[in-house]
Design a binder for these strands. Structure first.
Length: 112
DNA sequence: CGTCTGACGATAT
DNA sequence: TATATCGCCAGAC
């Protein structure tokens, strides 16, 4: 199990994702910044390889407020979000000004 | 090492 | 608003 996903950076990525509140959403880029990850694509990688990790993975969208999860996951994501009260625009996007959540402080650090 | 891929993001058009 | 392009970066091989 010497999985790369067990490294500290992934632990921070997952920890940050777990902080996204129900009914709110966050972007790949914001998670990456707050977790001190290499970048948005690393967050995508983390999610793609994270079955069964008790993560609110469906609350992660791209910077345009669009679902980027591939295939069936996309439809599932949309349903999960709708179930938490997140509303979509007519063209299937989410208004980040309204549902967006920004990490208050970087993972690992505490406010002072 | 070099090359390719991708659940990204910013910018130009 | 949509598409094209480029920058970015971890992993896979």
């Amino acid at each position: 199990m010497a999985d790369v996903l067990e490294s500290p950076v992934y632990a921070r990525i997952y920890a940050t994702i777990r902080r996204v509140p129900r009914g709110r959403v966050c972007t790949y880029g914001e998670i990456a910044r707050a977790a001190g990850a290499g970048g948005p694509r690393q967050v995508g990688f983390a999610l793609r390889h994270s079955f069964d990790r008790r993560l609110p993975w469906h609350r992660i969208l791209n910077a345009a407020g669009q679902i980027r999860a591939p295939g069936a996951s996309g439809a599932r994501q949309r349903a999960l979000l709708a179930a938490e009260g997140v509303r979509f625009t007519a063209r299937g996007r989410i208004d980040l000004r309204r549902f967006g959540w920004v990490a208050p402080w970087p993972a690992g650090e505490l406010p002072r």
